[in-house]
């Protein structure tokens, strides 16, 4: 019990929460945007992997860090366009197409990475994003190191959550996206083009997902290695359900999840020898499943999620 309190009171824990949450925030926001328009994007795991590789490779080849993020976002958008092309105008199974995108994007990422960087003993690294310095703000005890000493993409992720919440709730575009996700026929009756709206949402959402991957290679770590995304995409898909498709709750969900993750990371060495470390590593995945079970009955699913829309077809 005392150790729990000690861990919860440590500055390191709370500083880690925002860092661990960042890729999840990007992932969950991207997935949420796709799903609010009615398209499930199981390509997320592969898109995050490709984003991690593309962003890293751009920086490794001499581009700036922000250019790296841009490259990652563009690559994500490209895979998003592929997923949207298959599932929106053609109305193919969103499950199968999404899994296909994940397999294709991640294996292509490994292939291109191997082409660019031959096998070597130590993986090559880049100079990653450094924590920002907010001057006096960063010096405030506790709040300084936790809130005001993160890397720039973390603040970008939080800003995106606010922007997405505002866009969905308060703008005509947001209304159009939500209407398309609830009832594309009604959207068309309003003079909107459900197909274009869905494609746009999936492309934009996929770009955001890829940023989550790029955060891993350009801020959290400084190199790329296969399987580094480690199911974060699937966790993000679970978090969308947990958040009941609301950006604000998605942000809270990602932070809560990261808190548990940071907590178990610090508990691990203390329980060393008694509880195998793998048990701790399992908890994020089991927690995601538990979260799904808790909210499943109450979740407000977009009514037209996974329902293909073809003009003139019921």
């Amino acid at each position: 019990m005392q150790t729990t309190i000690d861990i919860l009171g440590s500055v390191g824990l709370w500083a880690a929460v925002l860092r661990i949450a960042t890729p999840l925030i990007f992932g969950v926001l991207g997935a949420l945007l796709c799903e609010r328009a009615g398209v499930l994007n199981l390509g997320i795991e592969g898109i995050m992997t490709f984003g991690a590789m593309a962003g890293w490779l751009a920086v490794y080849s001499g581009a700036g860090l922000w250019t790296g993020l841009l490259v990652a976002a563009l690559s994500g958008a490209a895979f998003g366009l592929l997923h949207a092309g298959l599932t929106v105008p053609l109305g193919l199974s969103q499950h199968v197409a999404g899994l296909g995108i994940t397999l294709f994007a991640s294996s292509l990422a490994y292939y291109l990475f191997r082409l660019a960087v031959p096998i070597s003993g130590t993986p090559p690294t880049v100079e990653p994003f450094q924590p920002l310095d907010f001057g006096p703000l960063s010096d405030i005890p506790f709040l300084g190191p936790t809130l005001f000493a993160q890397t720039a993409p973390t603040y970008l992720a939080i800003l995106l959550a606010v922007l997405l919440a505002w866009m969905l709730a308060r703008t005509p575009l947001g209304l159009a996206i939500r209407l398309t996700g609830e009832n594309p026929h009604a959207a068309e009756a309003q003079g909107l083009d459900p197909i274009r709206i869905r494609i746009g949402a999936v492309v934009a959402g996929s770009a955001v997902m890829a940023l989550g991957g790029a955060f891993l290679t350009l801020a959290a770590f400084n190199s790329f290695f296969p399987t580094m995304v480690q199911g974060r995409g699937w966790v993000a898909i679970a978090l969308v359900v947990f958040a009941s498709w609301r950006p604000g709750r998605a942000l809270v969900g990602a932070l809560l999840f990261a808190l548990f993750d940071a907590f178990q990371l610090r508990l691990q060495p203390l329980a060393g020898g008694v509880v195998p470390y793998q048990v701790f590593l399992m908890t994020p995945y089991l927690l995601s499943i538990l979260a799904l079970v808790l909210v499943a009955r109450r979740a407000r699913v977009p009514q037209a999620l996974m329902q293909p829309y073809r003009r003139g077809e019921r």
């Binding site: 699937w234 359900v241 399992m282 995945y285 995601s288 499943i289 799904l292 499943a296």
Partner: peptide, 24 residues
């Protein structure tokens, strides 16, 4: 069981269990 009892989508749960089992 989770799908039939609680309406939880099995795609995500089966995917997440893959990671759990490999850790096991």
């Amino acid at each position: 069981a989770l799908r039939l009892r609680f309406g939880v989508d099995e795609v995500v749960t089966t995917l997440l269990l893959n990671f759990v089992v490999v850790l096991l």
